[in-house]
Nucleic acid binder design. Structure first.
Lengths: 208, 208
DNA sequence: AGGCAAATCAAACTATCGTTCGGTTTAAAA
DNA sequence: TTTTAAACCGAACGATAGTTTGATTTGCCT
């Protein structure tokens, strides 16, 4: 008889086993293809070839292609959320807005350019229908930033009158292009982070 | 006999006829589908249905699907480039940096949310291979912005020491998310433009 | 009216997609 | 050695993609 639905981690919520499973290899292969060649090129056969298997064998580990993509999406966003939430929680209560901002930007940027950043880049290559599935989680992440800025306004560290619902996506939208800038300018991630912070806080130093 | 390769504008470089051709309708239909449902959903049959034709008939007007997509891309970027270049050229020589920036942002934002904005949205939904084809033209557009900022630095209107190769894509990256913000916040394009300008010039008014 | 080219259609072709499924390998337990 | 289940293969299926092609319609010119 078949052994479908076997071989998976016992429970999704259990303590994450640090072991690198075949499942992870498949996810990594799919993510790599999506980032490099786009969603269309990410066929089951292409993914299978990258892990030295045949297309049909993937269905022993995943129910469908959608399940693969969705898992990539979730892992990327959830990891980023966890990292930022953890970082913010670890900051001293008396940390200034500038400090908090620097920490947050650092987390975001390093997640975008780091060694495990592939999952973060997958998102932009997906068709809208699939993108929408992660909308809630992305909004949850944006909420962390919203809270950061709201705190600055409340404490008087940032000028009031800013529409945070505009400011947050504006800032994050720019920040998400980090890999592009780095490629174009040859700057380091630290330089990029510094520019983003300085520009946001003080602008470009224009004389009016 | 066949009449392939007929019915096209006589020459690509000739004075643009303002007439709305069937070719344009097909391009619009394809662009609309790409924006709304993604590149995958933009099949020849779907495009044809939107212009009340059958899939095969599209090949009387275009050589391939790729040609359609490429033309959408080029038209969008070239229109945007022409608009911005024209606008900047029309500014008085003594216009301040703030004025120039406001004008540029106005053009960019209105092109993103205006009636003819479809083309601009297409880009992000395309597979990387097709994206790369328009890279040169996009760099040319970015150059306009680069010049704008460089002029401000040269005239002392903006603080020196900024890496413009970083600043320009950072600013444009954020600006390209305009449609997202507007949807999320319900703000008008003017409000969005104002925020972008203010934030860039002065930051968020943080106390250091 | 008749002709002729532009424009469209209907139908098929080839390729490839996600997916299914019965059989085959592999390797540890019995 | 035999058993057994996990893991994978090989081959196919149905669906749909882009594209081709010969026939057909449409509308202007004479």
């Amino acid at each position: 008889m078949k052994a479908r639905d076997a071989g998976r981690p016992v429970a999704a919520g259990s303590a994450t086993t640090k072991q690198r499973t075949i499942r992870d290899e498949i996810l990594d292969a799919a993510a790599e293809i999506i980032v490099r060649e786009g969603y269309d090129a990410c066929t089951m056969r292409a993914v299978a070839a990258l892990v030295d298997m045949k297309a049909g064998s993937l269905y022993y580990h995943f129910r469908s292609k959608d399940e693969i993509v969705e898992e990539i999406l979730n892992q990327g966003i959830e990891t980023l959320y966890a990292r930022l939430a953890e970082t913010m929680r670890g900051l001293p209560k008396e940390a200034s807005f500038a400090d908090r901002l620097a920490a947050a930007v650092g987390v975001h940027v390093s997640s975008l350019v780091g060694k495990d950043s592939t999952y973060m880049h997958v998102y932009e290559h997906l068709p809208p229908i699939i993108k929408r599935r992660s909308r809630k989680m992305r909004e949850k992440y944006a909420q962390l930033w919203h809270d950061l800025f709201a705190g600055a306004v409340a404490s008087g560290e940032a000028a009031n009158g800013q529409d945070l619902h505009l400011l947050v996506p504006y800032f994050l939208g720019g920040l998400n292009r980090v890999p592009e800038w780095m490629r174009a300018s040859g700057a380091s991630s630290d330089q990029v982070a510094a520019l983003a912070i300085t520009t946001l806080l003080d602008g470009i130093g224009a004389k009016r």
